[in-house]
Computed example of a mutant assay.
Amino acid sequence: MSAALVAGAFWIDYRDYLSSPLSLPDDAPLTFEIKAGSSLKRVVDNLAEQAVIEKPRYILLNARLTGKGTQIHTGEYRLEPGMTVQDFLDLLYQGKVIQYSLTLVEGWNFKQMMTAIHTTAQLEQKTLGLSDAAIMQAIGHGDEHPEGRFMPDTYRFTRGMNDVAILKRAYNAMAGYLEEQWPQRAVGLPYETPYEALIMASIVEKETGVPEERDTIAGVFINRLEKRMRLQTDPTVIYGMGEDYDGNIRRRDLRTDTPYNTYTRGGLPPTPIAMPGREAIHAALHPDETAYLYFVSRGDGSHHFSSTLEEHNQAVIKYQLKGRKRSFSSYNNDEDENQ
């Protein structure tokens, strides 16, 4: 057989092999990882040992012919039944690594957020065991309180990324959104800084069970601030109670002073109490112009809003006391009470 015929046969076999299916064990998906510093040859040899690749020399030949052998990306890859050898090569050359996701939920506090991060197995944990201050130092903001500083969202990442990188992305997303939205705020709001708006947004986030009410709830709190009424919102009291909160809030809790007790202290609390989402931030910066000063839960997630204490008292009797008229703080004409 002439050299030309041999070469032709080899080339046909090479092309046929590229279009042939991979040999996946049990015809099931197979996951493998390319670590930093790994060569294509090492990857191919490992897969050949598992009988996934039958002709590794053809893989290496393709890498030389295309010049892409040095461009493979580190990360985790998944091979699916039915994939061809060429599909495998495209996966490597294009860096189509497995993407994982971590969702940070609106209304979570910093502790809840860090628990979610530290229990995400695919993340490298660099902040595990660190104090809140040390975590903020690790992301370059050691002089800031962590609460509310991170944007709730779903973050995509690859195996081996560390938690500090995720925290930086979430921090920058929140800082960027505030910077973008602050100049567009409504005129005359009682905030001196974007941080004060962030604090308000966190309260709105925790008080809102029905998304359509965010702007109205923000409007109520703005009205109370402007009239120098205390905000008197239970979520701030709960936050101030910390580990003492057992799922119930009692009258004595409302009377126990902490920096976050908006029943005993005027104005905004010193920091946010949770992670507000974009909608809550927008509500804090664009509240409804309303006469409402009070609201009470209807028990279904929505609220009844009132402009006067008398109307509010009647709503409390209807929705909270099941129609039974009895003594309670705002009913006793304490006009700085918000049930």
Rank of each mutant, 00 (worst) to 15 (best):
I34N: 08
Y195N: 12
W11F: 11
Y191Q: 10
R224S: 03
V237Q: 11
D163C: 08
H118R: 15
F150A: 14
G219F: 02
L18E: 10
D26N: 15
R156N: 09
T66Q: 04
P190F: 00
Q99I: 11
W11G: 14
V105Q: 07
F157E: 05
E279Y: 07
P152M: 04
V6E: 13
E226S: 07
G176H: 03
W11M: 13
A218W: 08
R159F: 00
G209Q: 03
T70V: 08
F32M: 07
N109D: 15
I203A: 01
G37V: 01
D90C: 02
D246F: 01
P259L: 04
Q71R: 12
M161Y: 08
G176N: 03
L293I: 10
L268K: 10
A170L: 00
N333Y: 02
D16N: 13
M1S: 14
L285F: 07
I199R: 05
F32E: 15
H286A: 13
V237H: 00
Y319E: 13
K318R: 13
T119F: 07
S20I: 09
I238A: 09
G242C: 02
Q181F: 02
D13G: 07
G142K: 04
E54S: 13
K111T: 11
N172P: 04
M1N: 12
H304T: 07
Y58H: 05
Q232K: 00
D334K: 04
K96F: 10
R156Q: 11
V204Y: 02
E192P: 00
Q50S: 04
I166M: 07
N223V: 04
P194F: 05
N261V: 02
D336W: 01
L189S: 08
R15K: 13
D246H: 09
T66Y: 00
A175K: 03
